[in-house]
């Protein structure tokens, strides 16, 4: 009782999960069932953005999402984000700008920015993208390089 299977597609691969407790978070399913440790647990309260993944293309806090609630969805984690042309540009921009210090927040930033750029394209001004990324926290406070990478990633869009 209160555990059942869930069908997900994760980073393009069908990933059926068995006996998932109803209260299990997507974050835990990805990390502990599928071994995708790129998705980080920061605060587990929706404040830090480290656990951001894409669910059917929409950036989502995986710590505040029940696995069962995304039944049938296509999930993209940081491990799969560069398979997408926008994600590949975002990753290259972060690497070129050296936009990381300890790196813990980086997967969340890469996924969140990829989601935003896929949703809004070049229509979003850099200032708006930065405001939207204010919900991703970098505890090293390495924001200058991150801001440069965001600007650069937007300019690299096809």
């Amino acid at each position: 009782m209160s555990a059942s299977s869930v069908r997900l597609t994760v980073n393009g691969a069908p990933s059926p999960l068995a006996e998932v407790p109803h209260d299990e978070r997507l974050l835990d399913s990805l990390r502990w069932r599928l071994g995708l440790k790129g998705t980080k647990e920061g605060c587990r309260t929706g404040n830090c953005g480290a656990c951001t993944v894409l669910v059917d293309g929409a950036s989502t806090l995986s710590c505040l999402t029940l696995t069962h609630e995304v039944e049938g969805a296509a999930v993209t984690t940081v491990e799969g984000v560069a398979d997408d042309p926008v994600g590949a540009r975002v990753r290259a921009a972060f690497a070129d700008a050296g936009a990381l210090q300890c790196g813990y927040c980086t997967p969340g930033f890469l996924v969140a920015l990829t989601g935003l750029l896929r949703e809004e394209g070049r229509a979003a001004p850099v200032e708006e993208l930065l405001e939207e990324l204010a919900s991703n926290l970098c505890r090293c406070t390495g924001y200058s390089a991150i801001a440069r990478a965001v600007k650069d990633a937007r300019e690299r869009l096809p």
Binding site: G49, S59, T60, E132, L133, S135
Partner: peptide
Amino acid sequence: VGGPALRHR
């Protein structure tokens, strides 16, 4: 309300 990742849900 939060950021885009929260507002998607």
